[in-house]
Amino acid sequence: MFARKTDDELIGRALDGSERAWLTLVRRHEQRLYNYALRMSGNPDDAMDILQDVLMSVYRNLDSFRGDSKFTTWLFRIASFRCTDYFRRRNWQTTTLGDDEDVPDDSGHHEPEFLLSQVEDNEGIVHLMGLLPPEQRQVVELKFFQHFTFDEIAGQLGISPNTAKTRLYTALSRMRAKSELSLAS
């Protein structure tokens, strides 16, 4: 019976204390969120961690959802916050271990003939996303995989729509440069 309710209806029920309503909402969105986290983090364990972290944060802040935007827009705004936090912690850990954080940790898997148009599976896509610094990765993710408008992305990341656009095109040319560079070598 909950399956046919809208997100807003489920949120209302959840705020009234319905556990089932909240769990229905979780089941409805977790797959999209998990795949987002997979592409952002690059591995299933971290993706699961991010998924749970985001959902817990959403659950705690449910009463601040105003309903003036779509639930998914708001959901991915929180996901972006939590992801930024995830990368911050990860960088901090790398630094404390004494590693050079500018060196991408996947450089060892880099195929010499890697080319954008040859990316065909999830592994290739994760690798491609891994070429980008986190803030560019987020824009690419929100635009190409979540299909948000530049205005929505700007709101989610707390930047201007123009910055979002610039960041996206910088990311794309970076990916192109990286792949062409490795093709030439």
Binding site: L38, M48, L116
Partner: peptide
């Protein structure tokens, strides 16, 4: 490229 992503199931 994005259209080639195969949705992963949540563990």
């Amino acid at each position: 490229v994005a259209s080639r992503w195969k949705t992963s199931r949540v563990p």
